[in-house]
């Protein structure tokens, strides 16, 4: 199991566009991937799940991947987070 915590720095939080990109990235992997925020946990491959969290600026979120490609998944997700300016 691979786990990583992120601090959201983007002013608008995880809104529709970055959420879509995160979901697209997560969906490329076979691992089970979850996004956890304020003790609520959703499937990162579900756009409606991600949007339902309403993650705002300066939130702290945890992403967990579990499966054969968990390491690559977390690396790719981290990359998307950074390139979308969601995190540093």
């Amino acid at each position: 199991m691979e786990k990583r915590e992120y601090n959201i720095i983007a002013e608008t939080g995880i809104h529709a566009r970055p959420a879509t990109l995160l979901v697209q990235t997560a969906s490329k992997f076979n691992s089970d991937i979850t996004l956890e925020y304020q003790e609520k946990s959703v499937n990162l491959k579900s756009i409606m799940g991600v949007m339902s969290l309403g993650v705002g600026q300066s939130a702290s979120v945890t992403i967990t991947a579990d499966g054969e490609d968990e390491k690559q998944a977390i690396a790719a997700i981290t990359e998307t987070m950074k390139s979308e300016g969601l995190t540093d």
Binding site: T20, Q24, N43, K45, S46, I47, M48, G49
Partner: peptide
């Protein structure tokens, strides 16, 4: 993406 949401 909503239309492809596996959970939904």
């Amino acid at each position: 993406a909503i239309l492809a949401d596996p959970v939904f």
